[in-house]
Design a binder for these strands. Structure first.
Lengths: 112, 112
DNA sequence: CGAATACTGTGCCATGCGACTAAGTGTTGC
DNA sequence: GCAACACTTAGTCGCATGGCACAGTATTCG
């Protein structure tokens, strides 16, 4: 659970930056080289590389180097941890809603 | 779109901290006072208040003060922006998948 | 071979975050 | 009234983040 939390930390931190979200969006269209990606941002290459590294170390993308070109690929599955977290929240809310409904039902029964 | 991006920034930043995610989870069970929430964390009250303020300023919770007690309530709707972003990503992926499938189909047709 | 390309590594700096302590404000209970 | 309570404000501190410039390495092309 602590590991799970740490994973969430990393993924949410990675997603909290607009540049990194942009990269994810961009990679949704298909694999792209670091250079091609960086060209779209008003940022030096070393700065941009940090974002790429953040995304990779948090499992959101995967990169491979062939020759002098590093190519980035989106890891779609990774976003499932966000999905799971959202689903867990909804489960908690629904439990509460159920309890409230039972409470209302019980009160109605008591009134009868 | 820039506004939309700024909203996402705030929400993801807010969710990137385990304390704040804990608060959201906790509030899923129902409204709670700042004091009651803070008591569950190994943290001073001023430090904890900052997290509450971050959550509120990013629209994830709502707070009201009655007397000397401030009560926090979860704003479930706010997490929809995360849902929407995830949905947008999937839409992009599926477009790409569709294109790839068409490509494969076309190739098969050409072979016949 | 040598120049251009595509990163990669290093070091620096400004800013902001998250924690703390200490002191202040407004409410409530005896 | 006044003490306890529940925040709230103010100020400090260490450290992580995100940007930069500059130099280095490995590949590719003519």
């Amino acid at each position: 659970m602590a590991q799970y939390s740490a994973q969430l930390d990393g993924v949410f931190v990675a997603l909290a930056d607009p540049t990194r979200r942009w990269v994810i969006r961009r990679l949704g269209h298909g694999p792209t080289s670091v250079g091609d990606l960086a060209r779209e941002f008003p940022m030096t290459l070393p700065s941009f590389m940090k974002h790429v590294q953040t995304l990779e170390s948090n499992g959101l993308i995967h990169t491979t180097k062939t020759g002098r070109v590093r190519t980035c690929v989106l890891n779609r599955e990774r976003l499932a941890v966000v999905d799971d977290w959202l689903a867990e929240q909804r489960r908690i809310w629904e439990e509460r809603t159920d309890r409230l409904e039972r409470l209302v039902t019980d009160q109605q029964e008591n009134q009868q």
